[in-house]
C-alpha cells in the first residue's frame, strides 16, 4: 500500500479505536495485536506485522486495566505509529518497541484533552433534557465526541506515519548500540508500571502475598498464565469468607 494510503488508514484507525465505540471491543482494538492485524492486511506483510505487534503488545500488557479510565500509557497511539513504520522500514520487534515508548506517553495527554473537551457535550445534554430533545442527547453522546475526536486524533497519527518512515530510516542507521539497547531495557521495565498501578488500585496491602504466589509460580515453576488464572479463581473461592472478617 502507498505511504499516503497507509498513513490515512492508520490515522482513521487510531481515531476509531480511541473513540471507544463499543466498550470492550474498542478496548481490544487499542491493543497492538489488533493494530498489527490491520497493518498486516494493508501492507500484505501479515507475518512481519504480527511478530512486531506481539513484541509491542508485551510492553503494554500491564496497562490493559485502566482503573477509573486513567491511562498511564496509550497502546493505540504507540501501535498505530510504531507498527506500520517498523513493518514498512523493516525494523526488528525490539526497535519497534523503542519507537513505541515515547508515543505511548504522548497518548496520555491526548486522552486528557479529549475528556476535558467532552465536558462540553454534557452541558449541551443538560439543555436538551430541559427541552426534552432526545435526539440532542443521542448526538451529544455519540456524534459530537466522534467529530471532535477526528480533529484531535487523526492529524497526529497521519503526520507521524507520513513523515516518520523516512526519518526513522535515517535515524536507525546512526543510532548507537547502547541507545538501542537502552530502549530494549525500557521495554523490559515499562510493563512494571501497569502492574504496579493495578496493585495500587486494588489497594489492599494484606493481599500482597497473593502477588508473590503468582510471581513465584511463574518464575520458579514455569506455570502458564492460564493455569494461574484457574488456580487464582479457586483460591478466590476458598478465601472469600475472609472478606467478612476483614475491617467489618
Amino acid at each position: 500500500m502507498h505511504a499516503v494510503g497507509l498513513s490515512i488508514a492508520m490515522g482513521l484507525y487510531f481515531w476509531f479505536a480511541n473513540l471507544r465505540f463499543g466498550y470492550t471491543f474498542s478496548g481490544m482494538l487499542k491493543q497492538p495485536l489488533s493494530v498489527a492485524l490491520v497493518v498486516g492486511l494493508l501492507t500484505g506483510k501479515m507475518a512481519d506485522a504480527m511478530t512486531i505487534g506481539a513484541g509491542v503488545q508485551l510492553m503494554f500488557l500491564g496497562v490493559t486495566s485502566t482503573p477509573g479510565g486513567n491511562v498511564p500509557n496509550d497502546p493505540a497511539l504507540a501501535g498505530t505509529i510504531a507498527i506500520p513504520i517498523a513493518v514498512v522500514v523493516g525494523l526488528s520487534a525490539q526497535a519497534a518497541v523503542a519507537l513505541a515508548v515515547p508515543f505511548g506517553v504522548l497518548g496520555v495527554f491526548l486522552d486528557q484533552l479529549r475528556r476535558t473537551i467532552n465536558a462540553t457535550w454534557v452541558h449541551m445534554a443538560d439543555n436538551d433534557a430541559e427541552k426534552l430533545n432526545y435526539r440532542g442527547i443521542y448526538l451529544a453522546a455519540f456524534l459530537y465526541p466522534a467529530i471532535m475526536g477526528l480533529i484531535i486524533r487523526f492529524p497526529v497519527v497521519f503526520a507521524a506515519n507520513y513523515f516518520g518512515q523516512g526519518a526513522v530510516q535515517s535515524l536507525i542507521s546512526i543510532i548507537p548500540q547502547w541507545l538501542m539497547h537502552g530502549f530494549e531495557v525500557m521495554g523490559a521495565i515499562l510493563p512494571a508500571l501497569g502492574f504496579a498501578l493495578t496493585i495500587s488500585v486494588i489497594g489492599k496491602k494484606t493481599l500482597l502475598p497473593y502477588f508473590l504466589i503468582g510471581f513465584i509460580a511463574v518464575m520458579y515453576f514455569k506455570a502458564d498464565i492460564m493455569a494461574i488464572a484457574v488456580i487464582g479463581t479457586c483460591i478466590a473461592f476458598l478465601v472469600r469468607n475472609n472478606a467478612l472478617k476483614e475491617e467489618a
Binding site: G214, F215, A217
Partner: peptide
C-alpha cells in the same frame, strides 16, 4: 487480580 499481577510481572 493480585495473583494475575504477580504472574504477569514474572
Amino acid at each position: 487480580g493480585m495473583m494475575m499481577m504477580g504472574a504477569l510481572s514474572a
